[in-house]
């Protein structure tokens, strides 16, 4: 049996990842006894994968590229935004076409209508410091980036920052907190990534995942 470890992002994106593997004949063993376990077995229902011992690691979204880059997981599923911001040396293999959202610059409603209106040295709260820095550097704008780990919407409401850069799916949370998107940086979906070295030993598994999708 060949062991394959796959890191999945806990939270909102997990359902889509579980469905992706289920559709290919690998189900996440999520019975009551396992509910709180962070390593879950993959139950293989497709004979194509009978020689694989699949294990799912449930980790925080931003940690998926870390596990994959270090080889603690062979593959991972996570948003493209997280992969790019991590700057991890991983292979980006498949766009899984779910978890659609936009990485946006957002302001308190009415404060700023566009990037051009931002003050010099604008303070920006985000969980994506590298993508944010790259975005403003390309435009030649000097900004101060403050990295947060969650509830980013709170930052401009408490005068911690002028604006935020965050993911917007429906826009409901933004609206409820009196914020609005003023610029879209990029569109994001969930992606399958792989450790470059592990990929070489697991190419057959990857090819079968793609073939199973075609069937």
């Amino acid at each position: 049996m060949q062991k394959v470890k796959i890191a999945l992002s806990k939270g909102g994106l997990l359902g889509g990842a579980v469905d992706f593997f289920k559709a290919r004949g690998i189900e996440l063993d999520d019975n009551e006894a396992n509910k709180r376990k962070l390593i879950k077995k993959g139950i293989v229902t497709n004979p194509e994968f009978k020689d694989y011992d699949v294990e799912f690691l449930l980790v925080r979204g931003h940690d998926v590229p870390v596990y994959v880059e270090h080889g603690a997981a062979d593959f991972g599923i996570v948003g493209l935004d997280v992969v790019l911001d991590s700057q991890a040396k991983v292979h980006t293999l498949l766009d899984l076409d779910y978890g659609h959202c936009d990485l946006c610059v957002c302001s308190i409603q009415g404060n700023y209508k566009s990037i051009a209106e931002l003050p010099s040295y604008a303070r920006i709260a985000t969980t994506f410091p590298n993508l944010s820095k790259e975005f403003f550097t390309k435009r030649g704008l000097e900004v101060e980036i403050i990295k947060l780990y969650g509830s980013v919407e709170l930052a401009p409401l408490t005068d911690l920052t002028d604006i935020i850069i965050d993911l917007v799916a429906t826009g409901k949370t933004l609206k409820e907190n009196g914020l609005e998107p003023i610029h879209t940086i990029m569109h994001c979906t969930s992606h399958l990534i792989a450790n470059p070295s592990s990929f070489e030993f697991n190419k057959e598994f990857f090819a079968k995942l793609q073939q199973a999708a075609l069937v």
Partner: peptide, 9 residues
């Protein structure tokens, strides 16, 4: 040179 289950060459 790569080794299985090691993340780097």
């Amino acid at each position: 040179v790569l080794i299985k289950d090691e993340g780097n060459h």
